[in-house]
Nucleic acid binder design. Sequence first.
DNA 1: CTGTTAGCGCATTCAA
DNA 2: TTGAATGCGCTAACAG
Lengths: 335, 335
Amino acid sequence: MKVSRAMIAKEAGVTPTTVTCVLNNTRPVSEKVRKKVMDAIDKLNYVPDIAARTMQGKGSKQICIMVDNIKNPFFAELVYSIEAEGIKKGYFFSICGKMDMKTYAAHIIARKIDAVYFCSEIQSDEVKYVRQLLDNGIKVLTSLKFKYYESEISHIDMATGDAIINAVKYLYGKGHRNIAFLNTFTENSNLDDRLPCYKKITEELGINATFSNPEKSLIANIENGERLFETLIAKDPEITAIIGINDLVAIGGIKRAKELGYGVPEDISFVGIDGIELSALITPPLTTYKSDASALGKEAFGILYNMIETSEVSSYNHRMEMIERESVRELRREG
Amino acid sequence: MKVSRAMIAKEAGVTPTTVTCVLNNTRPVSEKVRKKVMDAIDKLNYVPDIAARTMQGKGSKQICIMVDNIKNPFFAELVYSIEAEGIKKGYFFSICGKMDMKTYAAHIIARKIDAVYFCSEIQSDEVKYVRQLLDNGIKVLTSLKFKYYESEISHIDMATGDAIINAVKYLYGKGHRNIAFLNTFTENSNLDDRLPCYKKITEELGINATFSNPEKSLIANIENGERLFETLIAKDPEITAIIGINDLVAIGGIKRAKELGYGVPEDISFVGIDGIELSALITPPLTTYKSDASALGKEAFGILYNMIETSEVSSYNHRMEMIERESVRELRREG
DNA sequence: CTGTTAGCGCATTCAA
DNA sequence: TTGAATGCGCTAACAG
């Protein structure tokens, strides 16, 4: 049933070692022998066993992507892009969702996963599991704010904080002075730089900082955008513009705003972050700061690959590009 | 660095065999010894090596999900749901995208993946790789039309064909007689039952069958929906209603229709399939046949788990539920 | 250029 | 109730 290297050797009339060598190019092999081996492999449909190879400490050729919320199209595209890039180089990808890190860490270590890419935030009580991964020789790449073990971890700066700053400035330039932030993290969560950047820029501009402040950090999806909007607008009815922590949240906000009878952008302007396809399709089309998920995926795999092959830690600054659409109204200011 | 079973044994003052036995409950162990072993495991952060276990023919505890297009939120949610369900039972999930099946089959066999779930269609020239998986003892579950090796493969019937039939009937009931189908498969692709069902029901009702007929099968996404709509409406300007092969395609059609100056649903009505969140958010909200991706995921994992544990093949009929929104107009018919 | 051997970490005989 | 020995499929060090 299962065809192993020994059978290939027998079929080709050589020894198992020779088979290994032609497969891994680990030493010169005569053309004649190589051909015999290749023919045998073809004939028997032989596929080398990675589990056995992994046991030799050769790595598993497998990378794990941690994504809280693959339902967010931004992450879906990111995952898609990484996989497309990595499979070409012989890597296989696993995904992890929203279970506890302890479970995932055990799985990852048990499988000798070569590298882990954290697309989602890492909670402070999960830091120890990152340590555990590192201790097991597993490479780590983070995208979001993570201030530990920096010399051992690669990092992609998503520039979401900059996007917030630019969004506030942009809205300010359009005459808005009551610019709120639809935030999904707890105020002192420290896991994301968007809220701190929001606070900083509003202070600089000398305008009010109004932001949603959930009791515990929430998934940044449409549904939570709806709920948070409702709380936020109740807290401060004077708001004229809202920045969503991502497009999904902004879209949820718009949806609920319209349901509650607000005009968008007549009464309230909205800005998002990510630039997912959906942002162009809603009414009104959302002004947003677009992140090229596909390019990001390529870059991410490149870094992961490099870490695995050379153990080199690196960092990369990803850029966001503004897409101006119709969800923001220019405010005339009197005086 | 790497902590193995032997170290646990030493730490606990027992033999490796004993460690194995407490871990796998494979024979009685005294409470005292069990505790000592557990303490050692805890202390050293020991995680059993799955690669080694896999080599004993115990399976890899890993399942692979084949999805053409994880960017489709329906599949994203499906994957999310399967993973959430499976991780609880100790399974780990890999995803495969749009590379060639040959590559994926090799990866899957090499890793002794326990089971594969095909969410996407299987091309006829890929059938041989399914055979290869089966020959390697890998369990297979399909969702879409696949008429080979039926006794060895589990199947979830997604009832997409029924949805098409119901959609046509529904539109017919609303007075439409020029009901087109925005199709992404080639006409004789044989990979999907939606086009055949569409043809059948239009014939039964005695109305025209108009459908897009791409030269090669396309990903059913928004972009292709836009393009296909344009071709379709050029071919038959009399169309009053359009069914998308899924929501994304319908949404693409709506987008382009509006851009071209058609009123939706005033001039053209639209119906989708899948019931993704986005379908409720566009203007006008899309009438669609919703498939509960989350429930489907649970069911899918259940079947996969059962196949792995007991080798039992099974089949399941998934249901779709209509959600009536605002993308369909009732046509008054004269005479 | 090719063959022989040992060992990766574990499960599973068999023996005590 | 516990321990010792063998082998899974492969790589690598060592011979020829």
